[in-house]
Amino acid sequence: MARSSSQRDDWFALYRQMLLIRRFEEKSAEMYALAKIGGFLHLYIGQEAVAVGCIDAVEEQDYIIAAYREHGHCLARGSDPKAVMAELFGKVTGLCKGKGGSMHLFDVPRNFMGGYAIVGGHLPLATGLAFAVKYQRRPQVVLCFFGEGAVPSGQAHEAFNLAALWSLPVIFICENNRYAMGTPLEREMALYKGVTERAQAHGIEASRVNGMDVLAVRAHIREIVETVRQTPKPFFIEAMTYRFMGHSMADPAHGHYRTREEVEEARKHDPLLLLKQQILDQALGTEADFKAIEREIGQIVNDAIAFADASPFPAASELYDDVYAEPTSS
């Protein structure tokens, strides 16, 4: 019975995290429509199981680095939803004092080393984090998230080669949502059925996982993390997933490059529905439990909005701060 109770807590914790990301982002879309959030807003809805499953499999000391669709990774890492929402609002109480925005979330105290918006450009940074870990013989691993659209880029391949050449403890997590913006996999990548083979060609062990199943993702990553922590070397995971929304707020969920039917079919594999079903099948919870969580998360998201709304914008005096670091004696 004890085991079942801890399993219940564990599964609900995963569900809660995924639901937080889902509701946080739905609310973000509303705030975008109200012009409370500007610029580009790339929603992660549909892909939550990847960030939550992977990040739940590592320790606080491990580094996380991601691309520009990274609200989910940041929240899964435990960043305060208020500070994340305030950043989207461009407020001084945001994670980065409003200077980064949706695409550049950093939470360094949590070893969340940033969101990056040049496709492929952060993969070398991830290998560098792993280089430093190995250089200082620290027992950390690096999780590097990116879309399959980054895989054909030159910088990705340079990073794969260096990581393999020097056996660096970096786990490359390719979230294959099948579209590089609006270009489907088969029109962006030669040998598109073999994304993992690209990493294998560099001598990196690679595998594929169902990115809609948070339990499968976590179990798989846990195994790899254990291996990498013991013997530093890179690994490549292709997480098969799907984004339910458009590429950004400027892009409808379906239309030019994919059909309504395709999106509806994908939604049947919603990672939240799947975990809920797994919980119900195992009799670990009831509909009432889900309703309670829904209320709890709704409150957290509403609080985040209220906090972001009430927070001030950065003062004009902030403009020139943080361009350079001040030298300290060392």
Binding site: Y63, M113, G121, L123, P124, L125, A126, T127, G128, L129, A130, F131, A132, V133, Y135, Q136, G154, Q155, E158, A159, N161, L162
Partner: peptide
């Protein structure tokens, strides 16, 4: 691009 980016990442981690 690869090794300069790697070095920047290493600097982020304290080197």
């Amino acid at each position: 691009a690869g090794f300069t980016g790697l070095a920047i990442g290493a600097a982020m981690a304290g080197l």
